[in-house]
């Protein structure tokens, strides 16, 4: 009776009243935990179907000689042979080197330039919003489009990049080819990626800079701390968690970089810009070595997961300071 007294005309109560008595009894009989499971179950099912099962299946395939383009061929269990072949393959190590070069230099440049831009944009000046919009434009483009138009910028005969370098250094613009030269191509992809993703780092740094209360700087001013000292003892430590977050995002993104580099260099010249993701795609979907490429994917997954876990722990320690 007490319950009935509390009933109102709200929509929820109307739905409750309209629920058939047997169903209502069943629901009323469920515990909170059971109801929670009902809500969570679809997500868990999808997670298992889309993420966990393929992961387990990939691990299983990595111990076989399965090829997806030969469904009729016998599949043999070959133990750790795929892993041995990958880890002893000099081509794989070359792609790892190319990836490390790309990863390290893009992160270094993007953090330095991104932070510097954020620092400048954080100062109040006329046209601040307009410049912010202009700077963030590149990251709104598709990587494939960016790769494509940088191939034009790098054209020795008509490319703007070569023209500018020629103008600044006096060199003949057609005397060097950014994407055709073994020494320059790794830098060509670093430059294009830096151009595209520095704004992303800048935005994160900007959020960090704007989160620092003015009162801290005012207190430092009262203590007669110089600008340089304020920068190193207030700005940098307080922006550091944001910067580290940006490094984590860019690190994970660039470890799996594919589209921009494929459009720009196709992995060449030779295999000098063939990053692990491109190499893995070739093994899996061009050579159709499914077992081998599954092992390759597992190795990469463990590497990224391991490094990211260590990094996140470091990030949490910095935040706790």
């Amino acid at each position: 009776m007490g319950d009935e007294k509390q009933m109102t005309d709200s929509p929820i109560d109307k739905v409750a009243q309209a629920t058939p008595a047997p169903l209502a009894r069943r629901i009323r009989g469920l515990s909170d935990r059971a109801i929670a499971w009902i809500f969570v179950a679809p997500s868990i099912f999808l997670l298992l179907a889309i993420n966990i099962f393929p992961l387990i299946w990939t691990v299983h395939l990595s111990f076989t000689n399965f090829r997806a383009n030969r469904p009729n061929r016998d599949v043999e269990w070959i133990g750790l042979r795929n892993y041995e072949r990958i880890l002893s393959d000099s081509d794989v190590w070359n792609t790892m080197q190319a990836t490390a070069h790309f990863l390290i230099w893009t992160i270094v440049l993007q953090v330095l330039i991104g932070f510097a831009l954020a620092y400048l944009i954080n100062k109040k000046f006329k046209g601040n919003d307009l410049w912010t919009t202009i700077i963030v434009l590149p990251m709104m483009l598709s990587p494939a489009v960016v790769g494509n138009f940088w191939t034009f910028l790098y054209q020795p005969q008509i490319g703007l990049f070569n023209y500018v370098i020629g103008f600044l250094t006096g060199a003949d613009p057609s005397s060097f080819s950014m994407i055709g030269d073994v020494n320059l191509a790794p830098w060509a992809i670093v430059i294009a990626d830096t151009w595209m993703w520095t704004p992303f780092v800048m935005l994160i740094c900007l959020a960090g800079l704007r989160s620092i209360p003015d009162s801290i700087y005012e207190a430092a001013e009262c203590d007669r701390a110089s600008k340089w000292r304020q920068f190193w003892t207030i700005t940098v430590p307080m922006v550091l968690p944001f910067l580290m977050l940006a490094v984590l995002f860019r690190g994970i993104e660039n470890f799996k970089m594919f589209d921009l580099v494929v459009q720009l260099t196709g992995g060449g010249p030779g295999a000098i810009t063939e990053l692990t993701s491109i190499n893995l795609k070739r093994e899996a979907f061009e050579k159709w070595r499914t077992g081998y490429s599954s092992a390759y994917a597992v190795i990469l997954f463990v590497t990224v997961f391991g490094l990211a876990s260590i990094y996140v722990k470091a990030l949490n320690k910095v935040k706790e300071r």
Partner: peptide, 23 residues
């Protein structure tokens, strides 16, 4: 051959490495 793609990619890599990259 049924494995033509693998044969082709190997040749692409070896030839490009030498002709274009000069390795």
């Amino acid at each position: 051959e049924p494995a033509y793609a693998e044969l082709l990619l190997a040749m692409q890599a070896r030839v490009h490495n030498y002709v274009i990259a000069g390795e």
